[in-house]
Design a protein around this nucleic acid. Structure first.
Lengths: 187, 187
DNA sequence: GTCTATAGAACGATAGAC
DNA sequence: GTCTATCGTTCTATAGAC
């Protein structure tokens, strides 16, 4: 991995762990094993590095979700597989946590990937739920878009509960609760 | 409102808007209209002020939730009323956002109120769901604790979705989706 | 490409006058 | 109680040598 690459990966990790406000160029350099001059040679500054890091994290989230959504099983199975996929629950969501970062939300370039990622994810889940409904797998009375938003929210809120409790179990509990509500409509 | 009080309220606002890491003593003083010496006379420093601010925000969340939970209507009505209560959706949850603050989570004294608040809220909702189930209002197959965790998660995740989209509608959608799943079991 | 030197500002806190 | 002065550190970035 070259220096430029290490800088991006270090920034991704630090944005995940400490957020944008809590991450200094100095900390990024230290983790990447790169010098001051090196960092400012490859990037214009902290916002520029964050752009690269956030874009990559957003793309990764999307790819991993799509892998679950196109996996085996019924639509509801694939949604459950996505929600129950192994995650660094206690670290939180690398994209979702950015919504709490005032400097990220204030910069349109940093904010856009966050906004687009959640819009895509909700759309994708809504499409799966619509299919499931068409297949008679799901109660016709349920609104796919609202249900999709609820599922994404359970995901994001599950991270919050888990971090508050200091236990990944809380995430699992929230997901189980949501899937319990969802699959009870299968019968 | 005296100086000490203004300092606490200013800290609450800034923790809400910018988080612990993003809030400086200088910013607190400016918002409170208090001088440097004044702040350090009333409080030992930034962590001490944060303790007071976080404790108050946690207590407020609890009181407002309890008001909804003891309101009129069936158990499910009261849960719906709590979820749909008017909120500063785009500002996020003043307590939940602290789970993303590394320095808050690292300090046991700052973290405890956050942990306790969510434990209390989940317990309280689980108790209401248990009652609803006993009254035949809710499907007996649903686990009250898991369902409660899912509801709290929808709340917290709804804030994330709304902030990502820049629109409070996303919060409402997630809540509608969750209540759609929940109340479909009523029939 | 990477290094060191340097810069002005902000950070978080302390000291001591009033 | 509140003020100003001061402190050492960190922040984010630029300059220029190598």
């Amino acid at each position: 991995m070259d220096t430029r690459e290490r800088l991006i990966e270090s920034t991704r990790e630090l944005l995940w762990e400490r957020g944008y406000v809590g991450t200094s160029p100095k900390a990024i350099q230290a983790r990447a094993g790169a010098g001051q001059g090196s960092m400012y040679h490859h990037f214009h500054g902290k916002p520029d590095l964050a752009r690269a890091a956030i874009a990559r994290s957003a793309a990764e989230l999307r790819d991993r979700a799509e892998a679950a959504f196109t996996g085996p099983g019924s639509e509801l199975d694939r949604i459950a597989a996505y929600l129950r996929r192994e995650r660094d629950v206690l670290k939180g969501c690398p994209v979702g946590r950015l919504t709490q970062d005032p400097d990220v939300m204030a910069d349109p370039e940093l904010r856009r990937p966050v906004e687009e990622t959640f819009a895509w994810l909700t759309d994708r889940l809504a499409a799966l739920l619509t299919e499931a409904r068409a297949n008679g797998e799901l109660d016709a009375a349920l609104d796919p878009r609202a249900t999709a938003a609820a599922l994404v929210a359970v995901l994001q809120g599950g991270y919050v509960l888990a971090r508050a409790a200091g236990s990944a179990d809380l995430y699992a509990q929230a997901v189980d609760g949501a899937l319990g509500l969802l699959t009870a409509h299968t019968r």
